[in-house]
Amino acid sequence: MNIPSNLKYTKEHDWLEPLGDGTYKLGITEYAQEALGDIVYVELPEVGDEISAGDTLATVESVKAVSEIAMPFDCEVLETNAELEDEPEKLNVSCYETWIAVLKIYELEEVISAEEYEELIK
């Protein structure tokens, strides 16, 4: 399974790409998109939303399942990927190129490396 080594991961199967200045791109991993199956809808947050640790950032729906992306840290939504409104399937097709939101993360907690993530999903 593809787990790019330049990314960081959460235990909830999300990837984070550092953009500098405490900002990160967030998406879901290959493991997550495979588990969900054909993704049909993504409920995106509003730009400017403040998300507290433990709260839901976005909801990803497939035909027979739904997954809430909960944040293990406090963050603010800087940008969302509007492309997903019309083409949610991009999360299936190219999960690491397709981001869901750009976040300002105040303190990066509960985040693991690619190796650790690989171990987690074994």
């Binding site: 049909v40 809808y41 729906e61 497939s62 035909v63 027979k64 399942a65 739904v66 809430e68």
Partner: peptide, 12 residues
């Protein structure tokens, strides 16, 4: 649009 419904979302 069944992902809205109780049999998938349960308590959510």
């Amino acid at each position: 649009l069944q992902a809205r419904e109780q049999h998938i979302r349960r308590e959510k």
